[in-house]
Design a protein around this nucleic acid. Structure first.
Lengths: 207, 207
DNA sequence: GATGCATTGTTCAATTGTGAACAGTTGGAC
DNA sequence: GTCCAACTGTTCACAATTGAACAATGCATC
């Protein structure tokens, strides 16, 4: 896992963030690519009216700030740690060198980019096709998969209705309504966190 | 521009498609990466109910089918030529080799992936934040930029209201309504194609 | 110029979603 | 305990969006 540490140099450094700490903010100069070794990071954007949207939730193995490689000079989103997070920070130029000279990392980065692409594309398709009820169900299932695999049920760390609303592009009152509906129907359960039953899939698939 | 021809081998071949011809269909086995040398390609997805969504419109310099590099074995979308199109078709394994051994192409591919990422991400943010009226205005401006740069006005090749509706995830009647509104306000004009005035930007920016 | 096909114009009832308010609940800090 | 902040539960008037229908308009082709 410690890809970068193997040949660590001056231009790569480890960095720790606490929960809710800001890693970079929308509008900051974009100079580094970061690699998540441990933890979770939320990417959000705000528009002119102050409305916020969650663009992605990233975890271990994901990259961050890769936009600077494509010539982007400022950050288009705000990155916040959602759990205690260890990052490897790599300077842009170092990253470019690495992409040429280190196959294993180059492969990993390309694999990440391909996977990320698919994830965003699926989010977009989800938005284009589905009602907010289905989007909420899908978001919960995604977050659950993110936790564990294969189990019939997964318990999620606490996540506010506000954040869920931002993730799927709707209002909190709507999220609240559907959460209670899902609960009545036995798809989810509150117990400290949120326990998600795989039967929730039916909401996404039906019709 | 002819990146691939420089060292053309058996595993790379040129391919031509006529307007409206299908390059690959959703569900087909995914075996090749393609590079658009000339033309335009529309990526669409259909859901269970038969509703269609336009995921992307790609042009010269863009890649296609790169999902297979990330382990995807079937195509998740349908690719259709929107204008006469010349593609370079590269076998998956050849592409992987090329990514390791040919810096110029590797760079170009990564640049494409980064740009594509930003494009989809912007589309997603657009969906999360904006009304269908703004999304339509934005889509028209994107298509216009795709044609030419810098001019105060750009004329678009014909594009049906149906397709526009699929691009922004709404109904044709809604697109029709807003197109007529934009026309009344002098933002666009019909004259064979669709002429788009830069003042249309105000619709996207305002408020 | 008649035929058929694709597209556009228009309407409307029904549904879905918004934004804001306010009360209720919880959990941590003091 | 009690205060506070953050979150949830609930409601509602209003706005936006859908989906379907049907007529009107090109426009290519025979």
């Amino acid at each position: 896992m410690n890809l970068f540490l193997s040949s660590a140099g001056l231009k790569r450094r480890a960095c720790k963030f606490r929960r809710k700490e800001t890693i970079f903010a929308q509008g900051d100069p974009a100079k580094n690519v970061m690699y998540i070794q441990e933890g979770g990071v939320k990417l959000t954007v705000v528009n002119e009216t102050g409305k916020e949207a969650v663009v992605a939730i990233l975890g271990p193995g994901d990259f961050l700030g890769e936009g600077c490689l494509g010539g982007r000079s400022i950050c288009m989103a705000t990155a916040t740690a959602v759990t205690p997070t260890n990052l490897l920070v790599i300077e842009k130029n170092e990253m470019i060198r690495v992409l040429h000279e280190e196959h294993e990392l180059s492969d990993r980065f390309i694999t990440y980019m391909l996977a990320r692409n698919i994830r965003i594309e699926e989010d977009l398709i989800d938005q284009l096709f589905n009602s907010s009820e289905k989007r909420l169900a899908r978001a919960l299932l995604m977050l659950a998969r993110y936790g564990k695999q294969g189990q019939p049920q997964t318990t999620l760390p606490n996540i506010s209705q506000e954040t869920l609303a931002e993730m799927i592009g709707t209002t909190r009152s709507r999220v609240n309504f559907f959460m209670n509906k899902f609960r009545r129907l036995g798809f989810i359960r509150y117990n400290g966190g949120i326990t998600i039953d795989n039967s929730l899939l039916n909401v996404v698939l039906h019709e």
